[in-house]
Write a protein that binds this DNA or RNA. Sequence first.
DNA 1: GCCTTATAGAAAAACATTTTCTATAAGCGT
DNA 2: ACGCTTATAGAAAATGTTTTTCTATAAGGC
Lengths: 139, 139
Amino acid sequence: MDLETVKSKLHAMNFRLTQEREWVLRVFMESGEMFTAMQLYDRVKEQYNKVGLTTVYRLFEVLTKLRLVTPFLIDGEIYYTFCSGGHHHHFVCLDCHRVKNIYGCEMDTRDFSEIGKIEYHRMDLFGHCENCQGSVPSC
Amino acid sequence: MDLETVKSKLHAMNFRLTQEREWVLRVFMESGEMFTAMQLYDRVKEQYNKVGLTTVYRLFEVLTKLRLVTPFLIDGEIYYTFCSGGHHHHFVCLDCHRVKNIYGCEMDTRDFSEIGKIEYHRMDLFGHCENCQGSVPSC
DNA sequence: GCCTTATAGAAAAACATTTTCTATAAGCGT
DNA sequence: ACGCTTATAGAAAATGTTTTTCTATAAGGC
Ligand SMILES: [Mn+2]
Ligand SMILES: [Mn+2]
Ligand SMILES: [Zn+2]
Ligand SMILES: [Zn+2]
């Protein structure tokens, strides 16, 4: 998904795409990583300008409403990754926190009717990506 | 898993089973629910005696080391559920927060070698349990 | 351009979690 | 059963994170 599409989705819910949100979104969407609020704040500061940490928190909140982020709890910390498109699952590198989407869901074929009425599900794989499998963790 | 087994696991790691931990563990293990630290603290207070909130936090920490809890992030809150035994997945009722274990994993049959080296995975279903499907949410 | 109002960001407040400190009791050895 | 060692309880303080408040600003519609 590109920034223009996000802009449309923002406008559809009466949110605005400010200069600051654009900076944060660029870093966030292009990274392929997941971030805590503080980590994304730091990264934006490096690549663009300083923005308020509050702005990052508020963007996560807005993107949550637009269902454009997925939160992960890792070691007690909340990480967010940009997520768009149809149903998919995730592989998360425990070293570099890069995220890969996994398509093709086998859950739909199973019957869980006696367990309860399923609203949604998540499937997350954790491990080490190719870049991080060398003797020296590179990323 | 029963309390005696947990006691053994505690002792194996040089932890102690105190009276307070036993109270908390009884509520936690027998509930089939997941709790935030504060929720479990309140529940123990109702059913047994008042214990320190710190004690609950420390028990979650200890049980994490023993791999006897699984954390869930729901609406920005961290919930823990007692988890023992072999590999399994979960169904979580969004209404009453009861948790059901799901056995039989289809992930092992799939090949993710080109994605990365998988350490572990999680699969969680969210929805409404039988008790909570009536017009009046009962639990 | 003008107007309305959502948003930025600093500061404060609220909240969750961890640490510190001293008294206590769990578990072990005798 | 008794005594010893040390992990733990719990209150209080500290820490770290997230939210709220407030005023100036700028996004977006007309
Ligand atoms: Mn995704
Ligand atoms: Mn379980
Ligand atoms: Zn990696
Ligand atoms: Zn239920």
